[in-house]
Computed example of a mutant assay.
Amino acid sequence: MYNGRTDPVEHVSHFNLRMAVHSKNEALMCKVFPSNLGPVVMRWFDGLGVGSIDSFKELTQAFGSCFITCSRISRPLDSLLSLSMRERETLKTYSDRYWEMVNEIDGNFNDVTIRTFKVGLPLEHDLRKSLIGKPVTNVRQLMDQIDKYKRVEEDQQQGDQSRSRAQGNASSRPSLGTINVIFAAPGRTGSQPSRIMFIARIAVDDSNSEPKKARMEIRSTLSFSDEDKVGTIQPHDDALVVTLRIGGMM
């Protein structure tokens, strides 16, 4: 449906394609043509004088002359040189902008199309490196390469989103307890310097539970032999404290 806001030449071309079987019947073409016009354009059609149109060609010429201000203006070829991938822009968004611009340029410039698309990619982009190492010879091959790297990009984005959700869920859960690991220098931990790792489980805070004096922190001592210290620098004076979240324990 033509509303008077798009290119009238394109509208006539599409109409001719749909009516190709009846192209020789000019009377029928003229009668069917207004069925694809919107209310505003129909006012123009209804205003045509009786006997002012003698053929379908004259009708389309009058139509084009009236709505010529809506004709699409072809972009110059050097418009492609101004296109480049923006910071944090996805390959899909950049390629969509690029092909939209290409479609607004009249003519067939495959070599320029391939070269300017490649130049518009960042130097470190994998697709640009691929196009340099293995150049494509036509636009179809370029589009296939773009689709390939778009799929890789989408897979990476889905993976990043999944990891972010997993990290968010893990950080929002309260820790089940605390694992303290301290390895001190010999002679600073009494008679058993290797028995210096313990696991403390956090007591549940329940107002209805036993009195505070009755609640005690549960500790399970883990021992380390001298073999566990192989490869470490001994002796040392500073204690090493490591805190990790492992299986819900902090």
Results as ranks from 00 to 15, higher is better:
residue 2 Y to R: 05
residue 10 E to Q: 06
residue 11 H to E: 10
residue 11 H to W: 09
residue 12 V to A: 07
residue 17 L to W: 00
residue 17 L to A: 12
residue 21 V to T: 15
residue 22 H to S: 11
residue 24 K to W: 13
residue 29 M to C: 12
residue 29 M to A: 05
residue 30 C to S: 14
residue 37 L to F: 04
residue 37 L to E: 03
residue 38 G to F: 05
residue 41 V to Q: 02
residue 43 R to T: 11
residue 44 W to G: 03
residue 48 L to N: 06
residue 54 D to N: 12
residue 57 K to P: 00
residue 59 L to P: 00
residue 60 T to L: 07
residue 64 G to T: 14
residue 64 G to N: 12
residue 66 C to P: 01
residue 67 F to W: 06
residue 71 S to D: 09
residue 72 R to H: 06
residue 74 S to N: 13
residue 74 S to C: 13
residue 77 L to Y: 09
residue 78 D to S: 14
residue 79 S to Q: 08
residue 80 L to I: 01
residue 81 L to I: 03
residue 83 L to D: 06
residue 84 S to M: 07
residue 87 E to K: 00
residue 90 T to Y: 02
residue 91 L to M: 05
residue 93 T to D: 13
residue 95 S to D: 05
residue 104 E to H: 11
residue 114 I to L: 12
residue 118 K to A: 15
residue 119 V to E: 15
residue 119 V to T: 13
residue 120 G to M: 06
residue 127 L to K: 02
residue 129 K to S: 12
residue 130 S to E: 14
residue 130 S to M: 09
residue 131 L to K: 03
residue 134 K to I: 06
residue 134 K to N: 15
residue 135 P to S: 09
residue 135 P to C: 09
residue 136 V to Y: 00
residue 137 T to H: 04
residue 139 V to G: 02
residue 140 R to A: 15
residue 141 Q to G: 08
residue 142 L to I: 05
residue 144 D to A: 14
residue 145 Q to I: 03
residue 145 Q to E: 15
residue 147 D to S: 13
residue 151 R to L: 13
residue 155 D to G: 05
residue 155 D to L: 09
residue 157 Q to F: 09
residue 158 Q to E: 14
residue 159 G to M: 13
residue 159 G to S: 13
residue 159 G to L: 11
residue 159 G to A: 13
residue 161 Q to Y: 03
residue 164 S to W: 01
residue 165 R to T: 09
residue 168 G to R: 12
residue 168 G to F: 05
residue 168 G to D: 10
residue 170 A to M: 14
residue 170 A to Q: 13
residue 170 A to L: 15
residue 173 R to G: 00
residue 177 G to P: 00
residue 180 N to V: 10
residue 182 I to C: 08
residue 183 F to H: 11
residue 184 A to G: 01
residue 185 A to L: 12
residue 188 R to K: 15
residue 188 R to S: 13
residue 192 Q to P: 01
residue 197 M to F: 15
residue 199 I to Y: 14
residue 203 A to R: 11
residue 204 V to I: 07
residue 209 S to Y: 02
residue 209 S to L: 08
residue 210 E to G: 03
residue 214 A to M: 14
residue 220 S to K: 12
residue 222 L to K: 13
residue 227 E to H: 08
residue 228 D to V: 03
residue 229 K to N: 08
residue 231 G to S: 01
residue 233 I to W: 06
residue 233 I to V: 14
residue 236 H to V: 07
residue 238 D to I: 13
residue 244 L to P: 00
residue 244 L to S: 08
residue 244 L to F: 12
residue 249 M to G: 00
